[in-house]
């Protein structure tokens, strides 16, 4: 056996492994991903390039698009809907625009990632059917653009918050572990639904419906306390509240808001359930994807 010319036997080994995906194990996943990191970046770059190549404003759209989306939603909820409801949607001292943006930016990330990842294998079936490479790269690359919009959205959020008189404390550092949890959930579910969508094409549509429902069933444009208060008052059956809280995004979005806008350490219980979901979904998603990877091309 001749090692690759640059002497990186790891790469050569990875390809031997790829040549027999039937034996691709979970243990090898990190190594495979490291070996194909450049490919992953290339695919993400391709996605971004292709999106804006022939547009006159070019890359500016990457900023304008999420910005316009947030402006429209903020306008609708703050100017059209909020006055009628009459109550403050978020905690005391938090402007509606900041509260909404905080929920929206992080919620959009998960939504965009999941719908893009689910469709990714079908969209790239000519690659999957013809070329052998680490299959995980495809759904992961599909999450590149949402990550990019998240960054832009986050910058916008900070600016809006500053303009509206919000301050940023050290507690903002809590968003790092929070985002890690959210990312794990998103990647795990995304891999799972991507693999599943190849066998059951209905999955793609179901994912989109669930995400639409999730937008209202997550504290995006209202506060979690609002829901908890309604539960305590007995207006809503306890089982519905339990179901609501089973959505890890409910806790996560609340925690983001506490860390960023309220400037305090998020409540401990907000971490527990999402972290459990994250571990389970990440492992489950990777295992499911690895299992189906060798035969993906048979179903495409």
């Amino acid at each position: 056996m001749k090692p690759a010319d640059t002497g990186d036997t790891i790469n050569a080994m990875a390809i031997i492994e790829q040549a027999q995906p039937g034996h691709a194990t979970l243990r090898r996943l990190p190594r495979d991903l490291i070996a194909s990191r450049e490919l992953l970046l290339d695919l993400v770059r391709k996605d971004l390039r292709v999106r804006y190549r022939y547009a006159a404003l070019g890359f500016l759209w990457a900023v304008l698009e999420p910005l316009a989306y947030m402006v429209v939603l903020t306008f609708i909820f703050e100017r059209v809907l909020a006055p009628k409801s009459g109550t403050a949607m978020f905690g005391p001292g938090i402007p509606f625009a900041s509260g909404l943006l905080c929920g929206l930016v992080f919620w959009q990330f998960t939504t965009q990632c999941l719908s893009a990842a689910t469709a990714s294998l079908l969209d790239n079936q000519n690659l999957v059917k013809k070329v052998c490479f680490t299959r995980e790269v495809i759904p992961l690359a599909a999450m590149g653009y949402p990550t990019f919009s998240l960054l832009i959205g986050f910058v916008v959020l900070l600016m809006v918050n500053a303009i509206l008189g919000g301050t940023l404390g050290l507690s903002a550092l809590w968003i790092a572990p929070l985002f890690l949890i959210q990312l794990s959930i998103t990647v795990g579910v995304g891999l799972f639904s991507a693999a599943l969508n190849v066998r059951f094409r209905d999955v793609g549509y179901m994912v989109n419906i669930v995400l639409l429902l999730g937008f209202y069933a997550s504290p995006v444009f209202y506060d979690l306390d609002w829901v908890l208060a309604a539960a305590q008052s007995g207006d809503v059956p306890a089982i519905v509240v339990q179901a609501y809280l089973a959505n890890p995004m409910a806790e996560l979005l609340e925690a983001y808001r506490q860390a960023l806008l309220e400037g305090r350490t998020p409540n401990g219980w907000l971490f527990v359930w999402p972290a459990c979901v994250a571990v389970v979904s990440l492992i489950g998603g990777c295992v499911a994807f690895r299992r189906s990877a060798p035969t993906l091309s048979d179903y495409l």
Binding site: I16, A19, G22, C132
Partner: peptide, 18 residues
């Protein structure tokens, strides 16, 4: 052999880059 699809049963060994 290219690794695009997996064999249902049996073993396959490929040594080297394909």
């Amino acid at each position: 052999i290219a690794g695009v699809s997996a064999a249902t049963t049996g073993t396959l060994r490929v040594h080297g880059r394909v």
